[in-house]
Design a protein around this nucleic acid. Structure first.
Lengths: 339, 339
DNA sequence: ATGAAAGCGCTAACAC
DNA sequence: GTGTTAGCGCTTTCAT
């Protein structure tokens, strides 16, 4: 392995000068710089990142922990985060938590290992009871739900308002019996509970009765469970003319399940999702959805984290208390709601 | 920051003993171990991975460089790789190459930085001309196309055979004028060229004429371009009753484009894709596809890499020459081809 | 503009 | 079963 010393010897300078060149420090004579660069090239030198990390205490990398990378939503989120991080000169390493509390705690511990300068944790499993576990001494930003008023910065979706708008949209389009396919509600600030609240609010506002038979809870927010829920609804005998799906992934399954049940969208039933994943625009019928401003949320999360990382550099300065950011959204009306 | 020294002092042992405990070495008295563990807990000690990496020269992490994480195929591939790597005690860090030659070269350089013990590179941009650039002194496995007979292990899809089977399937289902939506062909061993070859072979085998007007090349393998290609085909006046799409992502776009053109699938036109992404089963109509054995390919790629990493540990032993593995596939017939 | 000294936190190799 | 020594490759600090 070629070290900075080897390069220094070959270029006839000290290791420090080589270091200066590598790190683009200004005070190096042009001629010297070129001599060093030539030596680097000839010897095939590469910095040893581990050594640099040890010395500087920084890695230039942030961790992004998401439930599962193979769900479209998280893949697209990851892409946004990577783009935002690049703007701060940060790289992103992706972790999977398996949508479990244990996985999320493991991701927190990893970060503590100083592998990353900070962590963006997309929570699904952690709840209010875990607030204390977030009191770690390294930068963390929570992206998602289930922890409010925690000790760390938090970027959340406009869950209640978005769900209300989605449901109201169905009602506007003429639906009178709107079903809901959502995940397990823990009665806390999890995604399903919040979107459920929005759904209820919209019904109330329109003076429509709430019918528990029209709520189809599923265990995991997957296409498979969405399809099964739709078939269950269709087979239950309960009449419905609209479905609000807690996520687009679930909605894709619901569209399939409705087709399996011989129901036509949007003629018999109108459907709307949440997340506005890229696939939605290409489905037949194309999927109406709530579009949280993903880029803004990703940018805010990375921004918060970058600030916290910078804070740690300065001694003493504690920086602002835990911040909360709730994104904005827009409604995208497509064929599945008759657009 | 709490170091191993602090723990040693608190537990009344030497740093080495703490190290032994952390690394689960067997020769530590039970009582000592517990004393150390208690100290670790009380002080909140966490290993400094950078220091360990520097010392051992290993990181326990492999890199996975894919074109874009937000395409379903790569998200699902990443999930398979992560699962396979976990079986070898390896973690995975995901890089994006942006589907460009430069991005792929950058990923190679990063790995060289010793951030990772090895790299799985999903190539799209690198070509035969870049063979020499792969002659790096750290473990690399190529997953994908465009480099055969390179200096490194290579795991490839059954591109030609799969494409032939897909096209033959359309013909079996009664199609006589099969269109092809593929990417840019560079006349080399890129995905589009190989699958094009398979398409041609199937036409020849069935005694069907090749009509260049039925080939719709697109610049990027996205849903957007797929939809545009389908509309172009439909508007061209050229008759066709089947479409083989070079990937499922493209096929999703094609299904949309056909719907936009007033064509019904599978009645007017039958459609088949390649990759068998999870979404395909839930589309309406569900998408027929070629299913490469993703898990086997991921497992093989990780296995190759793990062996190469182990080799580097032993001095001298060179290990086998570059290996080549071409996966198997099966055809999944769904509604889009009339199943 | 360049360099010397020191040490980041850990573990391999070897004692005992 | 436990401890000593040494040093991985780099950069911070301070000098010149």
């Amino acid at each position: 392995m070629v070290t900075i010393q080897d390069v220094a010897k070959a270029a006839g300078v000290s290791p420090m000068t080589v270091s200066h060149v590598i790190n683009h420090h200004p005070h190096v004579k042009n001629e010297t710089r070129e001599r060093v660069l030539r030596a680097i090239d000839e010897l095939g030198y590469r910095v040893n990142v581990a050594a640099r990390n040890l010395r500087t205490g920084r890695t230039g990398t942030i961790g992004l922990a998401v439930p599962e990378v193979d769900r479209p939503y998280y893949g697209q989120l990851a892409a946004e985060i990577i783009a935002a991080a690049a703007g701060h000169g940060l790289k992103v390493a992706i972790e999977q938590t398996g949508a479990s509390r244990e996985g999320e705690l493991a991701a927190l511990a990893l970060s503590r290992n100083r592998l990353y300068d900070g962590l963006i944790l997309s929570t699904v499993g952690l709840g209010p009871a875990d607030t204390d576990l977030l009191k770690v001494d390294h930068p963390v930003v929570i992206l998602g739900e289930r922890i409010f008023d925690g000790p760390v910065d938090h970027v959340a979706m406009p869950n209640v308002a978005g769900a209300r708008a989605a449901t109201a949209h169905l009602i506007e389009r003429g639906c009178r019996r709107v079903a809901l396919v959502d995940g397990l509600r823990r009665g806390e600030v999890d995604v399903s509970s919040l979107r459920y609240d929005g759904y209820r609010e919209a019904l109330d506002a329109a003076g429509l009765p709430f019918d528990p038979r029209l709520v189809a809870p599923i265990e995991r927010l997957t296409m498979e469970h969405g399809a099964a829920a739709a078939r269950r609804l269709a087979g239950s005998g309960a009449e419905f003319d609209g479905v609000f799906c807690v996520t687009d992934t679930v909605a894709i399954g619901v569209l399939r399940g409705l087709a399996d049940s011989g129901l036509s969208v949007p003629r018999d039933v109108k459907v709307i999702g949440f997340d506005n994943v890229a696939e939605g625009a290409y489905l037949v019928p194309s999927l109406s959805s709530i579009d949280p401003d993903h880029a803004l949320m990703a940018g805010t999360a990375v921004g918060f984290l970058a600030e916290r990382i910078a804070e740690k550099g300065k001694k003493g300065a504690r920086g602002p208390a835990a911040r909360e950011f709730i994104g904005d959204f827009s409604l995208v009306a497509r064929e599945s709601t008759g657009a």
